[in-house]
Amino acid sequence: MSSTKRTIIPRVAPGNPRIDPLSQQPNILVNQVSVDYPVYTQRGLRGRRVRKIVHAVQPLSFTAHEGEFIGLVGRNGSGKSSLLRVIAGLESSTTGTVYASARPSLVGVGAALNQELTGRQNIALGCLAMGLKKHQLVEAERKVIELAGIGEAIDRPMRTYSSGMGARLRFAISLAAKPRIMLIDEALSTGDAAYAERSAQAMQEVLDDAGTVFLVSHAAQTIEDLCNRAIWLDFGEFVMDGDAREVARKYRWFAHNLAQGDEAKAAQLLADAKALGAQGYVQDSGA
């Protein structure tokens, strides 16, 4: 998978002389974006429903450039998916604005598109929804089927699909419109090695085409394997932004300590990480 790593000079913190805005065109600007949710909680079994505001994403700003494959890491509920949905324009942010050079397309693993329709019909439905025209459908369908690789299931209703098959088909459909900015929400953990190779190839094509890909995952290894930059969020708060390997490893060490029940050490690691992240873009230490 190391072939997906490219020599990219990422956008770095202010004051760093390596930044060259002319060679790396920004594709996305996240400007002061925050997301608050109202949630209703109920104490006990018969308690009163209480409305509470949850800060899913605290005000956050960054830019993403052509050729960058950015991983969003963090624990469950850290605001990764909320941020992704705001970047996709599917959800409005509470404050701030996202700017993009093209319409971002989100690939999620949520519910199936239309359960009663066959895979092939869903391809047509999805492609038309994304704005493709009828005469482009034949070519798009061929590519989607090739990438999804779900065999003759393509002519069966989607309700008969396993969750993995459904996720693969959806992923392939969203690539059919040749998105420049692609946002992936944990869609890659499905399928065999051949499929993983094909999808990595497909994403590489997006990157080579001056695109930007975001990948949400709580698996640090996936981020390290695929991405060249990573942003770590924790309970909606920014922790650090930097080289994918560096950030992923620091996150994994934190998550490992947390899993071992060593909360004091995990808290210390998180505090260290935040301090480091506050200094700017975290470079690859080469270790």
Binding site: I19, P21, Q25, P26, I28, L29, T63, V86, I87, A88, G89, L90, E91, S92, S93, T97, V98, Y99, A100, S101, R103, P104
Partner: peptide
């Protein structure tokens, strides 16, 4: 460094 891209319209607001 991003401001020119926003002003030129190359970067446009999403979800508006």
């Amino acid at each position: 460094d991003v401001v020119p891209h926003v002003h030129s319209g190359r970067l446009a607001p999403v979800g508006v």
